[in-house]
Design a protein around this nucleic acid. Structure first.
Lengths: 142, 142
DNA sequence: CAACAGTTTAGAATTATTATAATGTAGATT
DNA sequence: AATCTACATTATAATAATTCTAAACTGTTG
């Protein structure tokens, strides 16, 4: 499987040991057309489906965080009881559907660059995230 | 105490029964110069300090959510293990200090209006939130 | 292939939050 | 002012997400 070799290389490049679990997670996360959004729970379900042997919940957490630290994944700021991650690590923003709890990517044409005129001494800006919360137009909003 | 009467009236206006606990929470939350940001835990600590009798954790949760539903408080979208609330319910954005986990208000001059060019059919925009994550400039970032 | 450091694992522990069921109380009604 | 009723509060239990732990395992290096 040439794809896997690719992932093994990529993992090595950022200094992560290409273990079975990590390579499998790469397959599940990156062998797809579009980038996608998920919670740990989503990912565990996907992995159990697509894998012969089982993977520990703790491993999924560890690996997701390892990927995040190395820039393979981005955590998305939504105030929810769960954490959301995104395989699209480029600078972009999100719509959050409050009815379905789905995340929708914005590409760079959807939202104009955000112009920040304030700066805090001694601090550098790590990220600028825009979250547009939407809900059904007819029914009553929260 | 004329302040409390004020709060009692305000609570009545939005259809919340002005119980001892709710009035006390109003005092703690709104008898201050600046708007402020807190987690449930922060608030519980503040309340236990400033109150003679104790208040149940469940009551703090219930009351915060009651206040949120009635527009007395706004929840802020940060991906954290805790929920953050803001006594400033007007449209504004935030800086989040990843070192200290502190929230800092932006006023309308700090960030230009965000121009959203995408719209999702059948959905209306409920809110647009910008979160600027900052961290110390010298030490290594996450 | 031996050794070591980093990983995985199951399960326990922790933390935030919500549910439950009994008791208390604000506000209306007598 | 006594009573009633619906809503609030409370302590505690339950749930859910996440992290910790300590033992077993596995890439990688030499």
């Amino acid at each position: 499987m040439p794809k896997n070799c690719n992932f093994i290389e990529k993992l090595r490049e950022v200094g992560l040991r290409p273990t079975k679990q990590r390579v499998k997670m790469c397959e599940v996360l990156y062998n797809r057309e579009k980038t996608f959004h998920f919670t740990i729970n989503d990912l565990v379900k996907l992995l159990s489906e697509k894998m012969n042997q089982k993977i520990s919940l703790a491993t999924v957490y560890n690996t997701v965080h390892a990927f995040e630290k190395k820039g393979y994944l981005k955590e998305i700021s939504i105030n929810s009881d769960k954490s959301y991650f995104d395989t699209n690590t480029s600078l972009h923003h999100h719509f959050y559907d409050e009815d379905t709890h789905e995340l929708i990517d914005c590409d760079e044409n959807d939202i104009d660059p955000v112009n920040i005129k304030k700066n805090i001494t001694g601090k550098k800006i790590n990220s600028v995230e825009v979250l547009v919360k939407v809900a059904s137009d007819n029914q009553n909003q929260k």
